[in-house]
Simulated scan of single mutants.
Amino acid sequence: MKISAVILAGGRARRMGGVDKGLQLFRGQPLVWHCYQRLKAQVAQVAVNANRNQERYAQFGLPVFADELADFQGPLSGILTGLKQAESDFVLFVPCDCPFLPLNLLEKLQQPILRSLQHYQSDSQSAGENSPVLLTYASDGEREHPTFCLVSTLLVEKLTTYLQSGERRMLQFMRENETIAVDFSDQKDAFQNFNTLADLESKEW
Results as ranks from 00 to 15, higher is better:
G17R: 05
Q29N: 13
G11E: 07
F194I: 09
Q187E: 12
N177V: 07
C149P: 06
S124I: 09
V32Y: 03
S116D: 01
I113Y: 03
K21L: 14
S124N: 10
S116N: 01
Q125W: 02
R27D: 04
A70Y: 15
Q59C: 00
V91H: 00
T136L: 07
G18I: 07
I7L: 01
Q110T: 09
N104K: 11
P95C: 04
C35R: 10
A181K: 06
H145K: 14
T147S: 13
V46A: 01
F65D: 00
V91Y: 00
M1W: 02
A138D: 12
R52H: 01
C149T: 09
R175E: 08
R38M: 13
P146T: 09
Q29W: 10
Q37H: 07
D140L: 10
F173D: 06
H145M: 12
V151S: 10
L163M: 09
L117V: 02
Y36S: 02
Q111Y: 06
L39W: 11
S152D: 05
R175C: 06
L200F: 08
C35P: 11
V19L: 06
L155Y: 08
A181C: 09
P63E: 00
R38A: 15
F194V: 06
F173W: 11
G22C: 05
V46R: 01
P63L: 00
M174E: 15
Q45Y: 13
M1K: 07
A9R: 01
N49D: 08
D20A: 08
A13F: 08
Y137M: 14
L105T: 12
M174Q: 12
L109Y: 07
R143G: 13
E204Q: 13
E129S: 08
W33A: 15
S77K: 05
E144I: 13
L8I: 02
L101S: 13
D71E: 14
P112W: 11
L101C: 14
E68A: 03
C98W: 10
F72Q: 06
Q42C: 06
A66T: 03
P95F: 03
V94K: 07
F65K: 01
H34L: 04
D183L: 11
S152T: 03
M174F: 12
Y36M: 02
C149E: 04
T147D: 10
T179S: 13
H34V: 03
Y120L: 02
L159C: 05
D186V: 04
Y36L: 02
Q111R: 08
L76T: 05
S139L: 11
C98K: 13
R38Q: 15
R143F: 14
F93D: 07
V6Y: 00
R143Y: 14
